[in-house]
Amino acid sequence: MTLEVHDHEFVALVGPSGCGKSTLLRLVADLDTATTGAIVVGGRSPVDARHERLCGVVFQDPVLLPWLDVLANVRLPMEVAGGGAAAPADPMALIELVGLGRFAHARTWQLSGGMRQRAAIARALVLRPQILLLDEPFGALDEITRQRMNLELLRIWSERRTAALMVTHSIGEAVFLADRVLVMSPQPGRIVAEEAVPLPRPRAIETFASADFLECVSRVTRRLLGAVEGTPA
């Protein structure tokens, strides 16, 4: 299968559980190794891209280290990179950007789920990655927090202007965030459809109510249902 993510583009990948969308993301991040096929990240192989820290990864679990405070967690990629980081962002400015300014020295277990994920996003951005890889980042959050986090993510992404590849189950979330939505089918995992999202930016809470949004959601939904046709739910 083939997929491309351009600079400054937000691409969402939707599909049923088990279609391999998370695996795809893990391959791009070089957390798993592909047996066949070619992945190119910023003109490099995933291994080289990882060595050069071109990707920022946000997992479903925020994976903050509890023995570090929020600031130290956000600084972690810089610490690990040492002198290898070209021009890291100001971690404090990032913490402000994700709205955790008052919690820079908070203990991570004192934060709510949404706040933890904000910190994880700040951490993913601190080395100024070319592409942000998001694996169901808000999957564990309640619906209201999830909506708020989507708005936040758009705001952060539009300020940072990185490319983004996000995996999600939620069609509404995918359409709301992305420039393009790719639909994956299960067994074998394949990209069976691609829908451009013609919604103007900046998008806001009103976008959810617009006719274009609903129309786009229903198109993706039809594609997705077509993709899973014949497999038992």
Binding site: A29, D30, L31, R50, H51, R53, C55, V57, F59, D61, V63, L65, L76, P77, V80, A81, G84
Partner: peptide, 14 residues
Amino acid sequence: ASASSLDLMRALDA
């Protein structure tokens, strides 16, 4: 150490 924290360190090229 959780598998996810080890994933994180790998992604950071630690």
